[in-house]
Amino acid sequence: MTYEIILDWLQASLRWSAPLIICAMGEIFAERSGIINMGIEGIMLCGALCGVAVSYYAQSQAVALFACAILGLVLGLIVAFLTVSRRTNQVVTGLMINLLAIGATNVIFSVLTVMRHKRATTFGALFPESMHRIPLVGPVLFAQPFTTWIAIFIAFIASFVLYKTRWGLNVRAVGDNPQATATAGLSVIKLKYQTLILSSIAASVAGGILTLASSGYFAAGGMTGGRGFIVLAAVVVGGWDPMRTMFACMLFGATDAAQLRLQTTESIIPTQFLQMLPYVITVVALTIMVKRSRVPKTWGAAYDGRRS
């Protein structure tokens, strides 16, 4: 019995961490280029609604995720225009994007009344049914929806792009010294637009996966329940490194899953305390890790191209 619960928990941990990982990989690039995309919480929320809605109407998850990506692109352009071109405060812009997203998803969801009691089809597993029966690794790994595998694959890709490609080098350079990057002949503005759009697409797709890989429902209001902020924390805890951030996301996914599992069991600890757990861990982890992490030098600062 306990064995099954643990297996189930491990399985859910990985499944829950997939959207976090995808979102975090985008955010790493944005933050490495010196911009905190605080709006990922809201963008994720929009992606979640978009994913469910499109999947419901188009009956295709591929189309749904593609729609999420397009939505992310548009939102990313807005965020980039504000924070890069207009040099608005990144925290405020992000928080307002979140407020906007809560309002917008409520309004749209109230229009799409048909969807309230229907659930969209969820993702299937990557590996054939027969493999799910292998002890331990079967249920934990092979029964995972294919998005989990994609998330892990994306983390490796992100690591390669950041450290081994020219564009990755440019991103690492621009966050630490935008002036130097500009004088080396690169466009700081363009790079920041690229990373912000990338992070927004990642967040939106992650939102889509959040619903499509698990419940298939959209719940207005608190659907993402602060996961965007957990991603932000995971990026910091992971020291802006894709691999370490992936593990941080898995850890947070595991606490999230544990909380859900324990809610259903007869537990002496009130479930609300378990729900707090990811946030408490985040604060504690931040406190422990922040000293050791190497923060990108212009983290959160606006770039003024005219100042040379």
Partner: peptide
């Protein structure tokens, strides 16, 4: 005031921004 990226290596700084058609470093 030097326009070097402190956290990168010398060679990374040197090739930063040089256009090539190779995406991989």
């Amino acid at each position: 005031h030097f326009k070097l990226v402190d956290t990168l290596s010398v060679i990374e700084n040197v090739i930063l921004g040089i256009p090539t058609n190779k995406a991989v470093l």
